[in-house]
Amino acid sequence: MKGQEWYQTAEVAEEYDEKRFSRGGRLIDRREKRAVLEAIGPVDGERVLEIACGTGRFTVMLAERGADITGLDISEAMLQEGREKAHAAGVDDHLEFMRGDAARLPFPDDHFDVVFAMRFFHLADTPAKFLTEMARVSKDVVFFDTFNARSTRSLYNWLLPMGSRLYTRGQVERLVDGANLSLAGAEHDFILPYGFYRKIPDWVADPIRNLDVSVVDTPVGQPLASVSYWRTSV
């Protein structure tokens, strides 16, 4: 996994949310949470697994909506941030955070109703193995996002210290087929890469985002989207 050692440090975990989801990054957080909720539907009473849960921003959100949710991550420091977030939200008795390897999930087949991963596959060194494991433990929905090869993300990628794995639609479709999943839906968003929004204040980000949305909703804009959300079924 790219950046594994960097990702697991306490310093990175403590600053993770502030660096990525403050300023203009708040609108990214809102959009990603909406994408998750739209893809997996009502979760009250559903058994859910989040892969690479990080600081638990989705895990806690779904626990607040009644999910029986487990958040798995390789970083103990990130998990500790998640536990503190869950305690502050009053849902720490309704979810579980556990350290583990997404390539060898410690759960039986068909254990969860929903399995999802956000901000994960761009760092995955063996994406087929990870997606196959996600499919194995889900009995219904598998949801994930990717960063796209034919987009502004490819330019921004040069500036990243770790780089990111970028995907074409064809590559995603082959991954889905290889995991014996069926593609049930896809959304494409963000002409401008995430890093751009994180560098600007809210009052600048919001009108630029409105323009971004108007472009990505056109036939010309969709192929240029830097992020795709993929809903698949078992």
Rank of each mutant, 00 (worst) to 15 (best):
E38Q: 14
S75T: 03
I51D: 05
W203E: 15
R20N: 11
P42E: 02
A225M: 09
L27R: 15
K199V: 00
V43L: 04
D189N: 08
P219K: 10
I208M: 13
Q171H: 12
I28D: 03
R231P: 04
F143D: 03
W6G: 03
V142H: 12
R150W: 01
Q171K: 14
G185I: 00
R26W: 02
F21K: 00
V176N: 08
S214W: 13
T55Y: 09
V12C: 03
A63Y: 10
A13Y: 05
A102T: 03
G100Y: 11
Y197R: 08
Y16Q: 02
L155M: 07
L166N: 13
Q171D: 07
L72A: 07
W203V: 08
P223S: 02
R31S: 02
M1V: 08
L211I: 12
A63C: 12
V176S: 11
G41C: 03
R83S: 05
Y229D: 08
W230V: 06
K139E: 12
S22A: 08
L183E: 13
L192W: 13
P201Y: 03
P207N: 03
L131G: 12
F112S: 10
R34V: 00
L155T: 05
R150S: 03
E50N: 04
H87G: 05
E76S: 10
E46L: 09
V12K: 10
V213L: 10
A205K: 14
L37I: 02
L95P: 12
R30F: 12
R83V: 00
A77V: 00
F121Y: 13
R231W: 02
T232Q: 01
F196I: 09
F143Q: 03
M78S: 07
R31G: 00
G90L: 06
G54M: 08
K139W: 00
V114D: 07
Y229N: 12
F144K: 10
A10W: 13
L79H: 14
A124I: 04
S164G: 05
L183W: 15
D101T: 08
V215K: 09
D177F: 00
E81A: 07
L62V: 01
S233C: 09
L105E: 05
F144E: 05
G71H: 10
P108I: 00
F130G: 07
